[in-house]
Design a binder for these strands. Structure first.
Lengths: 248, 248
DNA sequence: CGTTTAGTTGAGGAAGGTCAATCAGCGTGG
DNA sequence: CCACGCTGATTGACCTTCCTCAACTAAACG
């Protein structure tokens, strides 16, 4: 598989078996990779969305800020994710997107999207499915945050990230690096960074996780799953069988 | 405008000017209205989505329940909304959908969707836009809940509902009926029903709202908006101008 | 080796949850 | 027509969780 298909294929390609032609179309999405430095703003709130970005390498996030200055992180993007689907149909971005680490992104002009989708219905559905799964992640995280305490929220989040990294083969074991400041960590989970710190210490003491630097090791999956109630089905690659896809 | 176009047209039709042919296709979505009683389950979690439902009359909601028995309401559907878009691409429903009042829904088989979308790209985008706006509502509600106190959450919610009702011309003034038990109210906002009750009383005392039975009157829009930071742009009908729609 | 930035720890306080008792509305059957 | 019982809303008391503020420590960087 050519390098430039690698990233997306391991995400969107999961959703269905794509034909050779689909793969060629898909490759268009990541045809123009360019390196971006940590902190780079990919788009700004209140601007008109004009590109999708395939995140080839690195991590990124989107956030919203309210009138009172508080900010909330919505999406967390990992390699292989397509950024910009959420705001695609809107006249203005509701979020701001920022690189969390150095990385590589491949922009794709939105005005070329209709042609792409006309040429492959399968691909159109795959994009739709991908968008739905991104939304599902957020929704699940938020639902979890609303109804569980700090430790469960964190358990849920580390399980989510671990699951997503495994899916794209960026980790094989039970540990991974989390390139998030505790400030950002807390913005994701809707709590204060002080409390995040405290809770992490407590979870380490309870033998649930282990930390060193940015690295997190999951020690007790059993217990973490029990408290977090994480549903990996949100990222399920199976499409609805009632969507009949005529040959792509 | 024929009665059977009325409901959807005042929702999805907002998003773009639809041709006569589009309207005809759109009408298919609400071609088979049937009355449903309060409490009717439209779909159950863990079943395969096979229908979209146009909600012609009445209110409905979807909820998820976690392992510990707690339930969270995600979507709240008002007349004109299309139900089922969230789970459309999934192999299984993640939510359960229930009628909140007596009403009328029009089911539409999902396997007829591809044909519909092939026949009108405009309509396909309109559906996509509609789905995005439903997700936007939830996201905004959740973000609000995460970063504000009880009174602000409630303010945000009543503003959201009021805005949506105005949009479909189900209310003209500053009051509306809310067919929610306080139990359900609290499940929407992620708090205990006891606290909802307390906070409502307090908001009435502060002259923000007025309550009698199920009816809520918004007294001080100024103050409510200030505390809730509700962004009506989430329901903005303008599509992204970079999506070039060739004649439908 | 200082300076800055991020993370940790402690103390006190506010917001909201839980439990339990009471109250109001309403349908039912005597 | 009235008493009863059911359900949902309200109120009170108490307690947990989490936030805020502030001091302190550790790591990162010139």
């Amino acid at each position: 598989m050519p390098a430039q298909e690698r990233y997306m294929a391991r995400n969107i390609g999961h959703h269905l078996s794509l034909s050779k032609r689909d793969h060629a179309l898909l490759a268009e999405l990541e045809a123009s990779p360019r390196p971006v430095a940590k902190g780079t703003v990919l788009w700004e709130s209140r601007t008109t969305p004009d590109q999708l970005y395939t995140l080839c390498e690195g991590w990124a996030y989107t956030s919203q800020c309210s009138a009172d200055g508080s900010r909330q992180i919505l999406d967390l993007f990992l390699p292989g994710d397509i950024m910009g689907l959420r705001d695609l149909t809107y006249h203005d971005h509701s979020t701001t997107a920022v690189m969390l680490t150095d990385g590589v992104v491949s922009p794709f002009p939105i005005d070329r999207l209709p042609r792409l989708m006309r040429r492959s219905a399968r691909l159109a559905w795959a994009l739709q499915a991908s968008a739905a799964r991104q939304e599902g992640l957020i929704t699940q995280r938020m639902v979890n945050v609303l109804s569980h305490d700090a430790a469960s929220r964190i358990a849920h989040f580390v399980l989510e990230v671990h699951h997503r990294l495994q899916r794209i083969e960026e980790t094989s074991g039970d540990s991974f690096d989390l390139p998030l400041l505790q400030r950002q960590f807390s913005m994701l989970l809707g709590m204060s960074s002080v409390h995040v710190s405290r809770t992490l210490v407590e979870m380490a003491n309870r033998g649930l996780i282990q930390r060193s630097r940015r690295n997190i090791r999951l020690l007790d999956f059993e217990a973490l799953n029990r408290m977090a109630d994480f549903d990996p089905n949100t990222l399920n690659d199976n499409l609805n069988p009632h969507i009949p896809l005529t040959a792509g």
